[in-house]
Nucleic acid binder design. Structure first.
Length: 508
RNA sequence: CGGAGCGUAGCGCAGCCUGGUAGCGCAUCUGCUUUGGGAGCAGAGGGUCGCGUGUUCAAAUCACGCCGCUCCGACCA
């Protein structure tokens, strides 16, 4: 059987790279760890951005933009924050180049008095603005968001999943009370959960991160965790309750209604281009990418079967009219995105390109289709019947009437498939360490899901010790899911009474 | 930064051990044929064999150094 990709999912890391490349999503750049996002990959990001932006605004936030350079002294203000990010910071030290000894280099005479760091996140520079903008309880809550690029100097980059520069949105809010800020943190976590599931068709588990996995400077961190097809967890979004940590470090205060001065409670939350990696590893198959229709830059692609013959004109005319009619339809609250591929390459080649890119519906129109008013199409979510590619033929009108429903069905189908994988691979009932070792035994290649175990939420040194034991098995605590039972088994690690269930797994 | 592996055409690889000046498949270009679907035939273009130094009459091949990539650790949205 001939697949559209050179490798299949049994070699998951190679397969992932093949999809990214062959689906025209992105490529590596001359700068180590930074990527070039190609039009098809960027198109997916634009869809993600547009829909998430709408949801962020619908929850009362306004967009703004802060500089990518942050004075070094700003980042130093919050102790944990510095410690967390210091190791991966890009630093700007000069503002001019000069040719010295025939070599172009930073001009020593143009050294910055205070180095600038390239933002790894913007809490400190936005906090600085908050401290000036917030005077009164009447200014609160302040609900901001920005779409930006950030830089974290990572050791081991991987396209979309972990790149030195990446794109994201970061929400930053300030509130009068802790309760209000906590509510905001949870609200945005829920926005992410629903977005991931509805739009990306990527089921996730929302929950709270253990102490050792918190954002540097946060009081609490919540995440949504998705399960990739190799069983590993992908942290797909985070939402942080920062308490008054940053407010105290940056003097973000307001006068309350009785005239007293109080520190604000702040939050921050973000999702990044990593989501695209999540989509690839959730939905991709051995023929390449499968895009959920809601984020596919082109939802229905029409490939005319042109043969350099007179009837080509009729085929093209039929296709153009079809695309025009498709474009009148609305799906997921937006105009249907239909595209006619007239590129002068072999039709078969076009078909496979769209298969690899994951266009949800690929239509092939030949002279006979055009003449008889018929539409022949493939569903990318169910491309093959056994080994053979499955083509479906329908009268044009029937297809047009059913296309919106069909796209919705594909979206739902992809979700259901991923949801079954997630639910089917979280194992409960393991109560001792031997059970953990047993579950995760074997090599890296064999699929393992996650364990859901009870624990007593140890902290400090005790938690560090647990972390070390887990690390030996390449495991981490992903999060403590929001929905918890009423009663708990004894703690798997300490034997103490359990207070919470957590997810354990391998992660990206 | 530590351990392992790998850098030869856009992609996937052979050649390296046993030095003689570069090859295969796919892709690309041209022509002819074909045409309900990843076509056939013929021809063509494309490579300072990661970079540098050395050994040699001669280096993709041997030696040394460097760089980059991938996987595994530390880090991580």
């Amino acid at each position: 059987m001939q697949r559209a990709l050179p490798v299949d999912r049994s070699r998951f890391a190679d397969w992932y790279q093949a999809v990214v490349r062959d689906a025209d999503m992105a490529e590596t750049s001359p700068v180590r760890g930074a990527m070039v996002i190609k039009p098809w990959g960027w198109g997916v990001w634009e869809q993600i951005q547009a829909e998430l932006d709408r949801r962020i605004k619908a929850t009362g936030h306004e967009n703004c933009y802060f500089p990518m350079f942050i004075p070094l002294s700003f980042i130093a203000r919050e102790a944990e924050h510095v410690e967390g990010f210091a190791k991966e910071m890009a630093v700007v030290t000069h503002h001019r180049l000069k040719t010295i000894d025939g070599k172009l280099q930073p001009d020593p005479a143009a050294k910055l008095e205070e180095p600038l760091i390239v933002r790894p996140t913007s809490e400190t520079i936005i906090g600085d603005a908050f401290s000036r903008w917030i005077k009164s309880h009447r200014d609160l809550p302040m609900l901001l968001n920005q779409w930006a690029n950030v830089v974290r100097w990572e050791m081991r980059p991987r396209l979309f999943l972990r790149t030195t520069e990446f794109l994201w949105q970061e929400g930053h809010t300030a509130h009068a009370g802790a309760e209000d800020a906590m509510e905001e943190t949870r609200r945005m976590l829920e926005v992410y959960r629903v977005f991931a599931e509805e739009v990306l068709a990527m089921p996730v588990i929302a929950g709270e991160k253990p102490e050792n996995e918190r954002f540097p400077g946060a009081v609490n961190t919540w995440s949504i965790e998705a399960m990739m097809q190799d069983g590993k967890a992908l942290q797909a979004g985070t939402s942080h309750f920062l308490g008054t940590h940053f407010a105290e470090a940056q003097n973000i205060r307001f006068q309350d209604d009785s005239g007293g001065m109080e520190f604000c409670n702040t939050t921050s939350w973000g999702v990044s281009t990593r989501l695209i990696g999540g989509v690839i590893m959730t939905h991709g198959d051995d023929d390449g990418l499968r895009l959920p229709p809601a984020i596919a830059p082109r939802q229905v692609v029409v490939v005319p079967m042109l043969r350099d013959k007179p009837e080509d004109a009729d085929v093209l005319k039929f296709c153009e009219a079809l695309v025009a009619d498709l474009s009148k339809e609305h799906v997921f609250g937006q105009q249907l995105r239909a595209f006619l591929d007239t590129k002068k390459i072999k039709s078969a080649e076009k078909r496979w390109n769209w298969v690899r890119r994951g266009a949800p519906i690929i239509i092939e129109i030949g002279p006979r289709d055009a003449a008889s008013g018929q539409v022949t199409y493939m569903r990318r979510d169910a491309l093959r019947d056994g080994d053979k590619v499955k083509s479906i033929a329908k009268p044009r009108q029937d297809f047009l009437e059913g296309v919106v429903q069909l796209l919705a069905e594909i979206q739902a189908g992809l979700y259901a498939e991923a949801k079954a994988r997630l639910d089917g691979n979280i194992k409960s009932g393991v109560t001792d360490w031997a059970g953990v070792e047993d579950y995760f035994a074997g090599d890296e290649e064999t699929f393992k899901g996650w364990l859901r175990v009870s624990w007593s939420r140890p902290a400090g040194a005790e938690l560090d010790a647990i972390d070390t034991r887990l690390k030996a098995l390449k495991l981490t605590i992903r999060n403590a899911p929001l929905d918890q039972p009423r009663e708990f088994a004894p703690c798997l690690f300490t034997g103490m009474p359990g207070v919470e269930e957590i997810l354990i797994g391998r992660a990206y």
